[in-house]
């Protein structure tokens, strides 16, 4: 692509990644969550792919694979964390520990330090979706040949 597209993509790449991280981090307070934030972050990867060609991201396949495995494993481990009650029981909610501040019933301004295992699961699923969508887009781009337009 032209130098205009490359410059804009270079500027917007960290912004898009940060917005995806924001959507994931506030998943238990605002609209959004792991899947949506992961899709937003993967759109940043797609933008780099369009602007710079697939050769720029060719050596990142191992990183994406590791991120996907890490996200899936973290999700299952967080599910096993509640095995004292049932699988997927939210043991951290209201425990006054990590993400453990209790919430009274009713509208409130929101507090990041709540919801137990939900923010951790949001991060796990967000990394998983980011790696999965990024890997799919990268594989599609790498299949067509090595023309670096």
């Amino acid at each position: 692509m032209t130098v205009v597209v490359r410059t804009i993509a270079r500027l917007l790449f960290p912004v898009a990644l940060a917005f995806g991280g924001y959507v994931i981090m506030h998943g238990h307070l605002t609209p959004g969550g792991g899947f949506q934030g992961g899709a937003v972050a993967a759109s940043a990867l797609a933008m780099v792919l369009v602007a710079f060609g697939p050769s720029r991201l060719k050596d990142k396949k191992g990183l994406l694979s590791a991120l996907e495995s890490l996200g899936g494993t973290a999700f299952v481990v967080l599910g096993f964390l509640g095995l004292g009650v049932t699988f997927f029981a939210n043991v951290l909610a209201g425990s006054h520990g990590l993400f453990g501040r209790p919430v009274p019933y009713g509208p409130n301004p929101g507090d990041l330090n709540t919801a137990g295992t939900l923010p951790l699961m949001n991060w796990a699923v967000g990394f998983k979706v980011l790696a999965g969508l990024g890997a799919v887009v990268l594989l599609f781009a790498l299949f067509g040949g090595e023309d670096d337009r």
Binding site: T30, G33, F88, A93, G94, P104, A115, N122
Partner: peptide, 16 residues
Amino acid sequence: QPEVAANNAVTAIVFD
């Protein structure tokens, strides 16, 4: 809110 301590009921359903 009392059980999962999440403001977002959709996230509470999806993950809990």
